[in-house]
Amino acid sequence: MAISDGGGAAVREGSSSPVYSAPARWLHWLTAACVLALIPAGFVMARLGEGPVANALYELHKSVGMTAFAIVVVRIAVRLTRGAPPPDQGLTPFERALSTWVHRAMYALVFVMPILGYLGTSMCCAPVNLFWLAPVPLDISGSEATAKAIFTAHKALGFTLAALVALHLAGVFRHAVIKRDGVLRRMLPVR
């Protein structure tokens, strides 16, 4: 059970470390699900030749990317309005700095990458239907060369995001399995 501190954070019973608000935790896990679907789909679809499987993966990638963008916009709004708990007291200064920069970079990438995908797709690959149901307006024109440059940046940022996710998961593993310091509990959904 969590007891609210009134500022968007709560302290879980039996712990001295505040947890993130329920909306922040759920938005985190929704973002994680999207990113963990987008990265492998992006790698696979880029290696497939043209065909129905590749086309389906591209459409799924675009739809999940747009969904991730919407979630991260809400996440940023929640963070700005509700705040976040202070860093865990047990973190070293290096862990605190690394955690801050990895999280900021992941936020930035999950925000910027869908915009780049939208721009590139607008210039070359319309139409897009959100989960094969709702058409998405793609009103930005540009050359094929510009679209290719945008997709090159999108791909490079995808590799960067994958590396940051791996670093984030390594930190999760370190805190959950090696240090067993309860840091992970700050982001787990309340049971």
Rank of each mutant, 00 (worst) to 15 (best):
V73N: 00
V73H: 08
V74F: 07
V78F: 06
V78A: 03
R79G: 11
L80R: 03
T81F: 11
R82A: 13
R82N: 11
G83L: 02
Q89D: 15
T92W: 06
T92R: 05
T92H: 12
P93M: 10
P93A: 11
F94Y: 09
F94V: 13
R96E: 14
R96T: 12
A97R: 11
A97L: 13
A97C: 08
A97H: 11
L98H: 11
T100G: 12
W101P: 08
R104A: 09
M106L: 07
V110W: 00
V110S: 00
V110H: 02
F111S: 04
V112L: 10
L116F: 09
L119G: 00
G120K: 03
M123A: 06
C124H: 13
C125D: 06
P127E: 07
V128P: 04
V128I: 12
N129G: 08
N129Q: 13
L133V: 15
A134K: 10
P135C: 00
V136L: 05
L138W: 00
L138P: 02
A145M: 13
A145D: 13
T146Y: 03
K148R: 11
A149Q: 14
A149N: 12
F151T: 02
F151A: 12
T152H: 09
H154F: 09
H154E: 01
A156S: 07
F159Y: 10
T160W: 01
L161G: 01
V165I: 11
H168L: 02
L169P: 07
A170F: 10
V177Q: 11
K179A: 14
R180M: 07
D181R: 03
V183W: 07
